[in-house]
Design a protein around this nucleic acid. Structure first.
Length: 478
RNA sequence: GGUCCCAUCGUCUAGAGGCCUAGGACAUCACCCUCUCAAGGUGGAGGCACGGGUUCGAAUCCCGUUGGGACUACCA
């Protein structure tokens, strides 16, 4: 149960089940693992736990890879990257697990167990009744050859069960600290099912050992699996990695985050207009902090500052408001070309035909107004369609405007040259003064007539981008 | 039931015995700025779960209680 020898290159891994898009809780584990690898100049290994092949589709598998790529969590070894410890999909490693299971039987550290489900259940409840910790009692551990063949000829199926060494287990966890289990707490467990398929406990141990993983960063729901992982690795003559069990990510109700809480997948956040930069920064701060003061970290700063030893051991609730705040911050950081490129998808998805040049020019006036990219369409709609039927509030504003005001605005704008935000504002202000209107009263009807909404980006800038022709047409139509 | 993990503002956290009349951020409230909406600025309210110890001194150490969570599978 010793950590990998000091000085050895750090190798971290992320081992998701390919169940479609990644859950943000898993992403945080992946991020911490990735950061630790990068921080130490080590390798990040991606391994896919797809032994439950029946439910794994190629699409789900690709979804996981796509999520990691979108987030910028690149892997040095794994599917599509290759590496010296492949294959990296567990479904392609079945013969390896079988060989290791046979090896354990050969060395007497695992055995065939013929107990039926009914028998196990019966003995379990008896243990419970006696106030003992339930778990396998070791009955088949000492079967004689004769007893074994009797079971075989009676057509009994068997599993391969690991003989858990009966001593105290001490785990030095990077996040949880020292955790101990008494000798009678950890019972013999199944390595291979009766149909010959490996169980998670076998596959993980074998893979972590063979892939020479030095640090396992994963959710603390697996904390009690650690001594069993370690036991199997040691039984196979390997050196167990160091573990870091990070607490679960909770929902607003403080229950472990799940689909129940709405969209929690990377794909969902992407579709809701969140930036990978924001998601990464937010997730990094969920359970970790550099100093308690700093909020924004670039990727390089995270790599430089991240420390598993500073990861909090208490569970954290996911707060969409804070993520959204960070998203707005990162949107403001993007240059117009980049932001525009990221907005295109959302604009076209809502049926707008986008002029790329115009879109880029519009970015400076909307970027501090967008909390998510999904807000781009409503903010910029007026630029990319001429169907600008006023909403209720806009209609109200137009109705309340002084008689003929919009026509006079149009007339006042006709001579404006050059057609720039500055000169447009000058013309609008001059007219407002003549009419005895303050800016609110003067601008709102124009905004309503030109954009169809009571809310829009700054008016003079909007009119500049829209162009004189379209502006005048809309004013006269209203 | 048993074992293990966890417990600072609503939320994320700083805090590793005196620097804490507990700091920062999100959210919230007020004000400022202002052509709408944002963004930005200033300020306010808001917390050490409870009870015992240890100590000159505890958010920090120990024990207990309470409350969450995980595990206890031929799930992972």
């Amino acid at each position: 149960m010793m950590a990998a020898e000091a000085g050895a290159p750090v190798r971290c891994r992320f081992a998701p089940a390919p169940s479609g898009s990644l859950h943000v809780g898993n992403v945080r584990s992946a991020l911490f693992s990735w950061l630790w690898a990068r921080r130490n100049g080590g390798a990040f290994v991606l391994r896919v736990e797809d032994t439950d092949a029946s439910r794994v589709t190629q699409e789900a598998f690709q979804g996981v890879l796509a999520d990691l790529r979108w987030l910028g969590l690149d892997w040095d070894e794994g599917p599509e990257a290759g590496g010296p410890h492949g294959p990296y999909r567990q479904s392609e490693r079945l013969d390896i697990y079988a060989a290791k299971a046979a090896e354990l039987i050969g060395s007497g550290q695992a055995y065939r167990c013929y107990c039926t489900a009914e028998e196990l259940e019966e003995r379990n409840s008896a243990q419970m009744a006696r106030g003992e910790a339930p778990g396998y009692d070791g009955r088949c551990r000492t079967l004689t050859d004769a007893e074994r063949s009797a079971f075989e000829s009676a057509d009994r199926t068997h599993v391969i069960r690991f003989h858990m060494p009966e001593h105290e287990w001490v785990l030095q966890d990077l996040v949880k600290g020292e955790v101990r289990w008494a000798p009678d707490q950890l019972k013999d467990f199944v390595l291979v099912r009766s149909d010959g398929s490996p169980v998670f406990l076998l596959a993980v141990a074998v893979d972590d050992m063979l892939m020479e993983i030095t640090h396992v960063v994963r959710g603390d729901d697996l904390l009690t699996a650690a001594p069993r992982n370690i036991a199997v690795i040691e039984a196979l003559g390997g050196t167990a990695p160091t573990y870091a069990h990070v607490p679960q990510v909770l929902g607003p109700d403080r229950k472990p985050l799940s689909k129940r809480h709405g969209s929690t997948s990377v794909e969902a956040f992407r579709e809701q207009g969140y930036l990978p930069e924001a998601l990464i920064n937010y997730l990094a701060l969920l359970g970790w902090s550099a100093d308690g003061e700093t909020t924004f970290f670039s990727r390089d700063e995270l790599i430089e500052k991240f420390d598993l030893a500073r990861v909090s051991s208490n569970p954290a609730a996911f707060d969409t408001d804070k993520l959204t705040f960070m998203n707005n911050h990162y949107i403001q950081q993007l240059d117009p070309d980049d932001l525009a490129a990221r907005c295109v998808h959302f604009l076209t998805a809502s049926g707008l035909s986008v002029d790329p040049t115009l879109l880029t020019r519009a970015m400076p006036m909307v970027r501090e107004r967008m909390k998510t990219l999904t807000e781009a369409p409503e903010l910029l709609r007026f630029l990319f369609t001429d169907d600008i039927a006023p909403n209720d509030k806009a209609a109200g504003l137009i109705a309340k405007a002084p008689e003929g005001y919009l026509r006079r605005v149009a007339d006042a704008l006709v001579p404006v040259e050059p057609w720039s935000a500055e000169s447009i504002q000058g013309a609008l202000d001059a007219l407002a003064e003549e009419e005895g209107l303050n800016r609110t009263k003067a601008f709102q009807p124009v905004r309503a007539a030109v954009t169809g909404s009571n809310v829009s980006p700054p008016l003079p800038e909007s009119l500049e981008l829209l162009g004189k022709e379209r502006t005048l047409v809309r004013l006269r139509a209203a």
